[in-house]
């Protein structure tokens, strides 16, 4: 991890002014600069063009750039706000802001809803939920019978699909997630509370000082 000068930063593809990003997010300028060090490392891990490609995102998440994972794809697509197949620095910071401990729960609930609304229909449908459970089982060491999967999905729909129309809408998801806060556990990254404290090496290399 090398030192990054401000001249280098301005010339780098995908870079965005930390002052603007800090104004739009919960992060301070110093925290945005610290996040840039992490971003730079991930975005130069394979293709070295200053943008995060899907293989680089997978490599950072799994230490394996070829590991296919439905949820990694979903998160990448949600971070890729411009939908151009790469994550630039602004997208990285704005997306991570959702995971900041101080970000309102309502924003986390909406992000999780979009994550699970696989086909972007505005609903989490039964088939989507079953697909995600099967993907989780396939991608982990958990083994469950088809009957057990059906039972879990049915039981979850009984609890969450209050109007019983076979799909979970945003309001139903909001009520369900509010009653089951454990569902949002992954939506908060405590490290982000003060990333310059949690990662002092970022301070040294980014020049953050306050």
């Amino acid at each position: 991890m090398g030192c990054v000068s401000s001249k280098q930063l301005k010339r780098t593809l995908g870079y965005e002014d930390p002052n603007i990003l800090a104004k739009e997010t919960t992060f301070t300028v110093n925290e945005v600069e610290a996040l840039y060090v992490l971003y730079r490392k991930i975005s130069h891990s394979i293709i070295k063009d200053g943008l995060i490609h899907k293989e680089e995102f997978q490599l950072a998440l799994f230490r394996n750039m070829n590991k296919k994972n439905l949820f990694a794809d979903r998160i990448f697509d949600l971070f890729d706000l411009k939908r151009n197949g790469v994550i630039d620095f602004g997208e990285f910071v704005r997306s991570l802001n959702i995971f900041h401990p101080d970000t309102p729960t309502a924003e986390k609930i909406t992000f999780a809803f979009r994550l699970y609304d696989l086909r972007g229909t505005g609903y989490i449908e039964r088939e989507e939920l079953k697909e995600m459970v099967l993907a989780l089982l396939n991608e982990s060491d958990l083994l469950l019978s088809d009957e057990a999967v059906e039972q879990i999905v049915d039981q979850t729909f009984k609890q969450a699909d209050v109007n019983n129309d076979g799909k979970i809408d945003h309001d139903e998801w909001k009520a369900f997630a509010s009653k089951n806060p454990a569902l949002l556990k992954n939506m908060t990254l405590p490290y982000l509370k003060d990333i310059t404290m949690a990662f002092p090496s970022f301070v040294l290399v980014s020049g953050a000082s306050d």
């Binding site: 992490l38 490392k41 991930i42 891990s45 490599l59 950072a60 998440l61 799994f62 994972n69 439905l70 949820f71 990694a72 998160i75 991570l96 995971f99 699970y116 939920l129 995600m132 459970v133 993907a135 989780l136 991608e139 982990s140 958990l142 469950l144 057990a148 039972q151 879990i152 999905v153 039981q155 979850t156 609890q159 969450a160 369900f176 089951n180 454990a182 569902l183 556990k185 992954n186 990254l189 490290y191 949690a198 990662f199």
Partner: peptide, 26 residues
């Protein structure tokens, strides 16, 4: 918890990809 005692979303949240802490250890 046993998987069968969890609701489907709890189960899904066990996925490694949904733990973005891993990004910080990149």
């Amino acid at each position: 918890d046993q998987p069968t005692s969890m609701n489907a979303f709890e189960l899904i949240s066990l996925n490694q990809a949904l733990n973005l802490d891993n990004l910080f250890e990149a």
